[in-house]
Amino acid sequence: MSTQCWIGTRKGLIQARRHADDSWSLSPPSFPGDPVTMVLPAYDGGVTYAALNLGHFGPKLHRSGDDGKSWQECKAPAFPAQYKAGDESSNEAKSVELIWILEHGANGDLWAGTVPAGLIRARGQGRLSNTGG
């Protein structure tokens, strides 16, 4: 059974750990003050992901290869660029506003469910050696 859980809040990300005597302790928050919309724990010793919604500055994705001790921002899921200046039909082209779910896929892929509705696959992002931009 897992001895830890992640708690994403509107004011940061907290890690709760259960100890041998069944007591719990909470870590200092990562991303203090920022809304954390989804946390994907590491699979098989790999990478943990945290999705943030920075409001004015958009959704962001961070990754940790050391169980949350440090985080690096990586490229967030995005819709294909379709907007063309002067082409009114492209004015409604969508942009990700929120990452609300993440899941590990095969071969290190990362799946993201978004608002507006979308399912985006990042190939190979689950491996720390394949860091996004």
Binding site: L54, G55, H56, F57, F79, A81, S90, A93, K94, V96
Partner: peptide, 18 residues
């Protein structure tokens, strides 16, 4: 380059709340 996703959205347009 890191600033891009903070100022511009997926379509390269200014973010709605910037």
């Amino acid at each position: 380059t890191r600033l891009r996703s903070y100022l511009l959205d997926d379509q390269g347009q200014l973010r709605k709340h910037v």
